[in-house]
Amino acid sequence: MSAITVRTRLWPVRLRSTPAVATAAAVVLACYLLVGLVGPLLIPYDPVATSVADRLLPIGAVRQDGTLALLGTDGAGRDMLGQLVHGARTSIVIGVSVVATCLAVGLALGTLAGYLAGWTDVAISRLIDVLMAFPGILLAIVIAGLFDQGMLVVVLALSVAGWVAFARLARGLTLSLRVRPWVDAARLIGVPTPVVIVRHIIPFVIGPVTALATTEFAGAVLSEAGLSFLGLGLPSSTVSWGQVIANGKDYLDTAWWISALPGLALTGLVVSTGLLGDHLTQRLGSSR
């Protein structure tokens, strides 16, 4: 006798990407965006101005001049709230620039490789293989270490390996799209190849690629923090959560808030981006 067995999940409770979770994630992300874009205008912060008298103040303490240090101060007496808010802007700017660069390069090379096939595909695919074989963060460290510190260098260092995921996705989708009859029809008419790609391929690739962009954004933000933590990222004149975490690592037992607060901020941003990304992948994942 045959019976249909229903296997119960080992972990019935799982943070799945339901619409409610996705909405919550989107709201959290919107808050980060708002803080990152508007916050620096409201909360002035000077990373070079230090105050020895106000060193290592805990959360909610009052400074010498009577003002409130809402989230405490770090080892040089700098305001933690200001660092968090300005760091949010840095993370968002870097994340968006890296993803935009990677998306543009990856989409262009991926669709070209998939559509033209032949030698173009071989060349681009081997380049992808080589970059995949190399840990992306290691490559970023090498590149960031070779040049002077700066925003542009960080964006470039993180983009060099980051476009590969976009290119692989775009290439795979293009391979299945190029044999669709509407593409054949365009070729028969004699529509120029760049127009065929832009008009008949890319509109069907852009959805899944956008979904991927969210997860790549989270990765870029994490990598930037990693580079800055190592001192290879942004110059100290620009606030970055990675730097703040690094600054606080000597005080972990006495002033935990210096490392913990930017760490929490980073976690919140990455997790909510990931949850939203899962949801977008479900909705836009297929090419039609």
Binding site: P181, W182, A185, L188, R199, H200
Partner: peptide
Amino acid sequence: QMVFQDPAASLN
């Protein structure tokens, strides 16, 4: 010119 088998997929 050509007319293809799959009617829906023939048109973008």
